[in-house]
C-alpha cells in the first residue's frame, strides 16, 4: 500500500525512475571479469562493523552482568553507573563522544571509534539480557552446585550459563538485529558502510528513490537471514 502510493506520488512528481542503473552497484560483469559493486562492499562492511561491535558488546555484556551480580560492592556500583550512563545517552551523542572526544585522546580512527561506540551502547543492552538470563535459573541450582564444592566461576560455567542460553538467545537475536540497524548511524562520521555508500552513490547520481529503496531492502534481507539462521540454533537449545 505505502509502496504503491509512494510510487504513484513519485510518478505524479515526474520522477525519472532509473532502476536499470542499480544492479551495477551490486556487481558488474565486464570483459575484465566479475566485480563486486559498491553496495555489495557496503554490505560486507556493515556486517563486519556489526559483528566486531557485537563481539565487543557480548564480552562487555558478560563482564558488566557478572559485576552487577557479584557480591563486590565496587563491582556492582561500577556496573550500575555504566548502565545508567549508556542507557541515558542518545546513540548519536555517544558516537560524537567517541569520535570527537575519545577519538583524539586515545588516537582512535573513525572506524575504531564507531565499533567501540556501537559495542559499548549495545553492551549495556546485552548485559541486561545476560543478567535476566542468569537470574532466570532457579537458586536451587546454585545451592546444588555450591554444595558439591564448586567455585563461583565453575558454577557459572558448568551449571548456570548452559541453562541460561535458551533464555538469552531470543533477546540476543533481537539485539543483533538492532546492532545491524543502528550501525547505519556511523555514516554520520563517514565510515564507509552500507548507508554511507548509499549516500555517496546518490550524491553522484541523484537516484535517491531507487537507492534508498534498495538500501532498505538490503537491511531487511540481512536482518531476516540473521533471524532465521539463529532460530535454527535456538531449536537446538530448546530442549529443556
Amino acid at each position: 500500500m505505502i509502496i504503491m502510493s509512494a510510487y504513484n506520488g513519485a510518478q505524479a512528481m515526474g520522477y525519472n525512475w532509473q532502476w536499470y542503473r542499480v544492479p551495477k552497484y551490486f556487481y558488474t560483469l565486464t570483459d575484465e571479469g566479475f566485480q563486486w559493486g559498491e553496495i555489495a562492499i557496503g554490505i560486507v562492511k556493515t556486517i563486519e562493523i556489526s559483528s566486531l561491535a557485537f563481539l565487543l558488546a557480548v564480552l562487555l555484556g558478560i563482564t558488566v552482568a557478572l559485576l552487577r551480580l557479584s557480591t563486590l560492592l565496587v563491582g556492582r556500583a561500577l556496573a550500575i553507573g555504566f548502565l545508567e550512563i549508556v542507557r541515558n545517552t542518545p546513540l548519536l551523542v555517544l558516537l560524537y563522544l567517541f569520535y570527537y572526544v575519545l577519538g583524539p585522546i586515545f588516537d582512535l580512527d573513525r572506524y575504531a571509534a564507531s565499533v567501540l561506540c556501537l559495542g559499548v551502547y549495545h553492551g549495556a543492552m546485552v548485559s541486561e539480557i545476560f543478567r535476566a538470563g542468569i537470574n532466570a535459573v532457579p537458586t536451587g541450582q546454585w545451592e546444588g552446585a555450591e554444595s558439591i564444592g564448586m567455585s563461583t566461576p565453575q558454577v557459572y560455567r558448568f551449571i548456570i550459563l548452559p541453562q541460561s542460553v535458551r533464555f538469552m538467545l531470543p533477546p540476543l537475536t533481537g539485539e543483533a538485529v538492532n546492532m545491524i540497524k543502528s550501525s547505519a548511524i556511523v555514516s554520520v562520521v563517514a565510515v564507509a558502510e552500507l548507508t554511507t555508500i548509499g549516500r555517496n552513490i546518490i550524491s553522484d547520481t541523484y537516484m535517491s528513490f531507487e537507492i534508498w529503496f534498495t538500501i532498505a531492502v538490503v537491511y531487511l534481507v540481512v536482518t531476516l537471514i540473521l533471524s532465521i539462521g539463529i532460530s535454527f540454533v535456538e531449536r537446538r537449545y530448546a530442549v529443556s
Binding site: G140, Q141, E143, G144, A145, S147, G149, S151
Partner: peptide, 18 residues
C-alpha cells in the same frame, strides 16, 4: 569450599542439574 567438599547436602527439591 574445602568445607563443602567434606559436607554433602540433599535438598527437598533435589536441585539436580537438568
Amino acid at each position: 569450599r574445602k568445607l563443602r567438599q567434606e559436607v554433602g547436602m540433599v535438598f527437598q527439591q533435589f536441585n539436580l542439574f537438568p
